[in-house]
C-alpha cells in the first residue's frame, strides 16, 4: 500500500534531461590571461577565446606577448620568459603582504592587473560524505580550514581529479571570522556512479585538493565567475584593457587523497 501511495507522488520527483542543439553565434577573439604568483614562482598562461564547439585549447596559445612583473615595494621588475603553449614564467616568488603589478603587451594592446601576496592557509581536513536527499545518496566533499582572526581572509579551493580540474569554490571568512571554515563540494550521486556517469568519481581516482589564500580582488573575480552560471553574465574585469582572466598572488597548500567508495562516511 505504501508503495502505491508513494507512486502517486512520483510525478513530483520526475524530471528529464536531454541534450539540445544550439547554433552558437561566434564572436571576435579576446585575450585571456591566467596569471599566478606563488611562494615559489610566477606563471602566466596567455591564450585567446575559442569557439564553443572547439575543444582544442592549445591552438589558442599566444606566444608573442611581453609580460612584465613589477614590485614597487622593492623597486624591481622582471620580464617573464616564454616557454610553450602560451605559458610565460619567472622564478620571482611572492612575499606575504607585498603587492605585485603585472603588465601584458601584445599586438598593440596593454593589459594590467595587480595582486597582493597572502599568508599560507591552515587546512584542517578533507573527507567524502554521503547525504540522503529524497531517497538519493549524494556525495559531498567536506573541506575544513582554520581561519586566522587577525586579518580578512579569502580562499580559493580547487579539487583536481586525476590532475584534471573537477570542482572549485571561493569563500571569505566574514561569516565566521577566526573559526573553522567549511566548504562543501557536491560530487554527484551513488546512482551516477553506478551508471558510470563520466562526471561521477570512480574507485581509485587520485584526488588533490589545492587551497589558496588569495586577495580581495582575486576573490571578487573568482566569486563573480562562480555565480555567473545563474545570471548568464561574464565575470567582473580583473585586468584593465579588456583582457579576460585574472592575476592572483597567493600562498597555497595541497592535500592528497585517493577515492575509495568504502571510505566514504555517512553523515
Amino acid at each position: 500500500m505504501k508503495k502505491h501511495i508513494l507512486f502517486l507522488l512520483l510525478p513530483l520527483a520526475l524530471s528529464c534531461e536531454k541534450e539540445i542543439d544550439i547554433d552558437y553565434r561566434e564572436t571576435g577573439r579576446l585575450y585571456v590571461a591566467e596569471a599566478t604568483m606563488t611562494q615559489t614562482a610566477t606563471n602566466v598562461r596567455l591564450t585567446t577565446t575559442q569557439s564553443v564547439n572547439d575543444d582544442d585549447n592549445r591552438s589558442h596559445a599566444v606566444d608573442n606577448a611581453t609580460i612584465v612583473l613589477t614590485c614597487k615595494y622593492y623597486d624591481w621588475s622582471d620580464t617573464l620568459r616564454y616557454t610553450r603553449n602560451g605559458n610565460y614564467m619567472s622564478i620571482a616568488n611572492g612575499e606575504p603582504g607585498i603587492t605585485y603589478d603585472l603588465d601584458i603587451y601584445v599586438d598593440g594592446h596593454h593589459f594590467a592587473s595587480s595582486s597582493t601576496m597572502q599568508e599560507a592557509p591552515d587546512v584542517r581536513s578533507f573527507r567524502f560524505v554521503w547525504m540522503e536527499m529524497m531517497g538519493e545518496r549524494l556525495l559531498y566533499g567536506d573541506l575544513r580550514i582554520q581561519d586566522d582572526p587577525d586579518r580578512s581572509n579569502y580562499y580559493f579551493m580547487h579539487i583536481y581529479r586525476n590532475n584534471v580540474g573537477y570542482r572549485w569554490a571561493v569563500m571569505k571568512d566574514e561569516k565566521d571570522k577566526g573559526g573553522e571554515l567549511q566548504q562543501l563540494f557536491q560530487c554527484g550521486s551513488a546512482r551516477d556512479m553506478e551508471k558510470g556517469d563520466s562526471d561521477a568519481l570512480k574507485e581509485g581516482d587520485a584526488i588533490r585538493i589545492e587551497v589558496r589564500a588569495i586577495d580581495r580582488a582575486s576573490y571578487d573575480y573568482l566569486y563573480s565567475m562562480q555565480v555567473m552560471d545563474n545570471s548568464g553574465s561574464n565575470p567582473i574585469a580583473n585586468f584593465t584593457g579588456g583582457c579576460l582572466g585574472y592575476f592572483s598572488a597567493y600562498n597555497y597548500v595541497n592535500l592528497h587523497h585517493t577515492f575509495h567508495r568504502s571510505e566514504v562516511e555517512d553523515e
Binding site: 579576446l30 585571456v32 591566467e34 577565446t49 580540474g165 579576460l244
Partner: peptide, 13 residues
C-alpha cells in the same frame, strides 16, 4: 558565444 580556460575549467564568454 565563446569559451576559454581558467583554472583548468572551461568558462563561457
Amino acid at each position: 558565444s565563446a569559451k576559454y580556460q581558467i583554472i583548468d575549467n572551461y568558462i563561457y564568454y
